[in-house]
Simulated assay, not measured.
Amino acid sequence: MSDLQLYQYVLIALIFVWSGFVRSGLGFGGAVLSLPFLLLVHNAPLVYLPIISIHLLVFSSLTIWLNNRRGRGADASSGLLDGTVDWRYLRYLLTVMIVPKLIGVFGLITLPSAVLSGIIFVIVAMYSLSYILNRPFRSGSRTVDIVFLMAGGYISGTSLIGAPLIMAVAAQHLRREQLRDTLFALWFILVAIKLAAFVWADVDLQLIHHLWLLPCAAVGHVLGLKAHQYLLRAETPVFFRVLGSLLLTVSLVGLVQSLM
């Protein structure tokens, strides 16, 4: 990113603030709702994915630790002694997803940048339509659950944007108070695998850029934590329709650019 213009650096910083906000505010979507914008600024997925991966490691682990620390007294009084992560269901998720995840990681390393960008824009466009129509992905059987999880694992391996499919399954089987932190624990493990693949393939982790992008994501993270409780109480379909329309527009523009 050393050859970018000043305005591009400013845009990237703002998008990472947005990424942190979405991640902590919604519990998922920090990558899927920021990658299309980042690719419009600078079309290089392998530049951004290591940065997003490290941010996920930092903020997912921090959120789980803080929530369990704050919740010890409340859990003891309410009988919830097993913490905010459902480790048993987490093991099930990993068992189903690990092989597709590894296949996706291999595809990420071998696919050309333009092809990967096109795949990302198509996937995000599909997600945006589900937001616009207020028909998020839902699974109705164990077989569909497994298909969604395997597809989410593969997409997560290629571009870190498989969260909506995984969320569609997990939200039906996890207690509300354990949903977000169980997903954060899952993201931590999946991202650790991706980072190991990056290191093995000698992909640049962009460590120098963490000096200014990690604080940007931290600002968004704090704002997202403040918005999380409000979003739980508010009527969110309108918010997601507006967000979906914006994402669809960005994805279509990006897809056209990647095909030119």
Score class of each variant (00 low, 15 high):
residue 259 L to G: 13
residue 70 R to K: 13
residue 98 I to H: 04
residue 100 P to I: 05
residue 94 L to R: 07
residue 105 V to L: 12
residue 162 G to A: 01
residue 208 I to A: 15
residue 252 L to A: 03
residue 209 H to N: 14
residue 61 S to C: 13
residue 220 G to P: 00
residue 14 L to A: 09
residue 97 M to I: 08
residue 61 S to H: 12
residue 249 T to E: 03
residue 34 S to Y: 00
residue 257 Q to R: 15
residue 71 G to W: 07
residue 73 G to P: 01
residue 208 I to T: 15
residue 72 R to I: 13
residue 1 M to Y: 13
residue 237 P to C: 09
residue 42 H to K: 12
residue 22 V to N: 12
residue 140 G to M: 08
residue 189 I to Y: 10
residue 143 T to G: 03
residue 133 L to P: 02
residue 74 A to T: 12
residue 10 V to K: 13
residue 121 F to V: 10
residue 104 G to Q: 00
residue 38 L to P: 00
residue 66 L to M: 14
residue 129 L to Y: 12
residue 168 A to M: 05
residue 26 L to Y: 15
residue 194 K to Y: 02
residue 152 G to V: 06
residue 169 V to S: 03
residue 201 A to R: 08
residue 218 A to V: 12
residue 175 R to S: 13
residue 9 Y to Q: 02
residue 240 F to R: 11
residue 150 M to N: 08
residue 53 S to R: 03
residue 23 R to T: 02
residue 2 S to L: 11
residue 125 A to M: 07
residue 116 L to Q: 08
residue 184 F to M: 09
residue 199 V to T: 09
residue 102 L to V: 11
residue 109 I to D: 07
residue 3 D to N: 11
residue 146 I to V: 11
residue 210 H to A: 04
residue 225 L to Y: 07
residue 253 V to Q: 15
residue 194 K to I: 11
residue 222 V to H: 06
residue 205 L to C: 02
residue 234 A to W: 01
residue 246 L to P: 02
residue 9 Y to G: 01
residue 157 G to W: 04
residue 97 M to R: 00
residue 34 S to D: 00
residue 210 H to C: 07
residue 94 L to A: 09
residue 110 T to L: 13
residue 135 R to E: 05
residue 108 L to V: 01
residue 259 L to E: 09
residue 225 L to W: 11
residue 116 L to N: 11
residue 227 A to N: 10
residue 253 V to W: 15
residue 219 V to D: 02
residue 22 V to K: 14
residue 91 R to E: 12
residue 237 P to H: 08
residue 141 S to A: 06
residue 193 I to N: 10
residue 33 L to F: 13
residue 198 F to A: 05
residue 260 M to H: 15
residue 83 G to M: 05
residue 172 Q to G: 12
residue 170 A to S: 07
residue 124 V to T: 07
residue 70 R to F: 15
residue 137 F to S: 01
residue 220 G to W: 01
residue 65 W to Y: 12
residue 225 L to C: 06
residue 65 W to N: 07
residue 117 S to L: 07
residue 39 L to R: 04
residue 206 Q to N: 13
residue 58 V to C: 00
residue 9 Y to S: 02
residue 33 L to E: 08
residue 154 Y to C: 05
residue 183 L to M: 12
residue 202 D to W: 11
residue 94 L to E: 06
residue 162 G to D: 07
residue 182 T to G: 08
residue 203 V to F: 09
residue 77 S to M: 13
residue 71 G to Q: 08
residue 29 G to K: 09
residue 203 V to L: 12
residue 19 S to H: 00
residue 187 W to L: 10
residue 183 L to V: 09
residue 2 S to T: 13
residue 60 S to T: 14
residue 200 W to L: 10
residue 136 P to G: 10
residue 86 D to K: 06
residue 78 S to I: 04
residue 134 N to P: 04
residue 225 L to K: 04
residue 108 L to G: 00
residue 232 L to D: 06
residue 50 P to W: 02
residue 203 V to W: 10
residue 95 T to D: 14
residue 11 L to D: 13
residue 36 P to T: 00
residue 148 F to E: 00
residue 239 F to V: 14
residue 31 A to N: 07
residue 206 Q to Y: 06
residue 255 L to E: 06
residue 91 R to V: 08
residue 84 T to Q: 12
residue 251 S to L: 05
residue 83 G to V: 08
